[in-house]
C-alpha cells in the first residue's frame, strides 16, 4: 500500500481499464435451468406439504388458546412471584406459537406449493432525459414569469423577511425553563446545617462515625424541602473517617475535617453520577458510571478516569451537642463543569 509515485497522470505501471476500454466479456449463460421441487413432480409430496401447512396453522390456534389460558387461568397472589413469571411465560409462549404457526405456515406454503419460477423484469431508467430537459424548461419559465431575477428589490426584501420570520418560532420556546442564574453555585448546605443520614435524615454524631466507615449524607431538612430532588442532586455528600495522619490537607483546609472525618460532594465532577463506591483499603472513591477514581488522601484528586476536577470538599465541624455540622456551603459549584463555572 506504499505510495509508489507522485500520482502524476503518466504513471507507467497501471492503466484504468475496466468499464472504459473494450474488454472481452464472458458470455452470460443465462438463468440456470429451473429445478422442479418434489411437490411439483409428485402429487403425494404436494399433499404432504399441504398437510404440513395445515398443521402449522393448527399449532397457531393452539398458541392462541395457550395465551388465553395464561391470561385467565392464572391467579396472581403475589406480584413478583413465580405466578407472574408463569403467566408471562404462557403469554409469551402462546403468542409465539400463534405467530410462528402462521408465519412458518405461510412461508412453507410459499416455498413448497406456490410457483417458484424466477421471473425476469427489465429495469427502466428512473426518468427520461427528455423529461428532465422539459422539467428544467418549465421551472426556468416559472422563475422567469415571477420576475424575481429582474426585480432585486422584491427578492432582497423577501429574503430578509423570510430569514427573520422563523425567529419568533425559536423565541417562543424561551419559557421552557428559567435562566440558570447562580443556582448551580449554591446548595442547601450552610453554616450550622447538620449532616444527616441518607435517606432517613437522622443527625450524625461525630463519635458514631468509626474509622474506615463511609456514610451517605444529606443536609438536615432536605426531606421537607420544596424541591427535594433538585436539592438532593446537588447536596449529597459522602462522609468518611480515616486516620488523621492519612490525610494531608492543603493550606487553608486544615480545619475542614474533624478528627479524621471528612465530607466530600458525592456528585461526580465528570458528568454527575453519584460517586458511591468507597474502597476502604486504598481510600479511593470510584464513580461507577465512567470509573473516575478520586483519592481521598489527596483531597479527592482524580487519579484515574475522565473526570478532571477533584470532588469539592464540604467544610465540617461539630456543634455543641457533638453532632456534625457544615461550616458553610461548598466553596465551589458541585457536579459537572459548565461554561459559566469559571
Amino acid at each position: 500500500m506504499a505510495r509508489r509515485n507522485d500520482g502524476s497522470p503518466n504513471t507507467p505501471d497501471r492503466v484504468g481499464t475496466d468499464g472504459h476500454a473494450e474488454v472481452e466479456r464472458f458470455h452470460d449463460p443465462g438463468l440456470p435451468p429451473h429445478r422442479p421441487r418434489l411437490a411439483d413432480k409428485d402429487p403425494r409430496a404436494a399433499k404432504r406439504a399441504e398437510k404440513q401447512v395445515a398443521i402449522l396453522f393448527l399449532i397457531s390456534i393452539v398458541g392462541t388458546i395457550l395465551f388465553f389460558v395464561g391470561y385467565f387461568a392464572i391467579e396472581i397472589d403475589e406480584p413478583g412471584s413465580s405466578d407472574l413469571r408463569l403467566q408471562n411465560l404462557l403469554l409469551g409462549l402462546g403468542t409465539a406459537f400463534a405467530m410462528f404457526g402462521i408465519g412458518i405456515g405461510i412461508v412453507h406454503w410459499a416455498k413448497t406449493l406456490m410457483p417458484d419460477h424466477e421471473v425476469v423484469e427489465s429495469r427502466k431508467p428512473v426518468t427520461k432525459e427528455s423529461e428532465r430537459a422539459e422539467a428544467e424548461q418549465i421551472l426556468g419559465d416559472i422563475i422567469e414569469e415571477t420576475g424575481i431575477k429582474r426585480r432585486p428589490l422584491i427578492r432582497n426584501t423577501m429574503l430578509v423577511a423570510m430569514i427573520l420570520a422563523p425567529f419568533p418560532a425559536i423565541a417562543i420556546f424561551r419559557d421552557l425553563g428559567p435562566l440558570p442564574g447562580d443556582v448551580l453555585r449554591h446548595t442547601m448546605w450552610d453554616e450550622g446545617v447538620r449532616l444527616t443520614l441518607d435517606p432517613t435524615g437522622t443527625p450524625i454524631r461525630a463519635s458514631d462515625v468509626t474509622i474506615g466507615s463511609a456514610v451517605h449524607v444529606i443536609p438536615e431538612g432536605l426531606n421537607e424541602a420544596e424541591h427535594k430532588l433538585e436539592e438532593k442532586a446537588k447536596a449529597v455528600v459522602l462522609l468518611m473517617r480515616l486516620n488523621p495522619e492519612d490525610l494531608s490537607p492543603s493550606e487553608g483546609r486544615e480545619d475542614w475535617g474533624y478528627e479524621g472525618i471528612v465530607a466530600y460532594s458525592k456528585i461526580c465532577t465528570h458528568v454527575g453520577c453519584p460517586v458511591a463506591l468507597y474502597e476502604q483499603q486504598t481510600h479511593h472513591l470510584l464513580c461507577p458510571c465512567h470509573q473516575s477514581t478520586f483519592d481521598l488522601t489527596q483531597e479527592c484528586k482524580v487519579i484515574f478516569g475522565p473526570a478532571v476536577r477533584p470532588l469539592p470538599q464540604l467544610p465540617i465541624t461539630v456543634d455543641a451537642e457533638g453532632y456534625l455540622v457544615a461550616q458553610s456551603d461548598f466553596t465551589e459549584p458541585v457536579g459537572p463543569s459548565f461554561w459559566e463555572r469559571g
Binding site: A96, A98, M99, G103, I106, V107, W109
Partner: peptide, 13 residues
C-alpha cells in the same frame, strides 16, 4: 407470502 409470513416469525421471536 414469504415477506408477510416473515412478519409473524419476527413477532414470534
Amino acid at each position: 407470502a414469504k415477506a408477510g409470513g416473515f412478519f409473524f416469525i419476527v413477532f414470534g421471536v
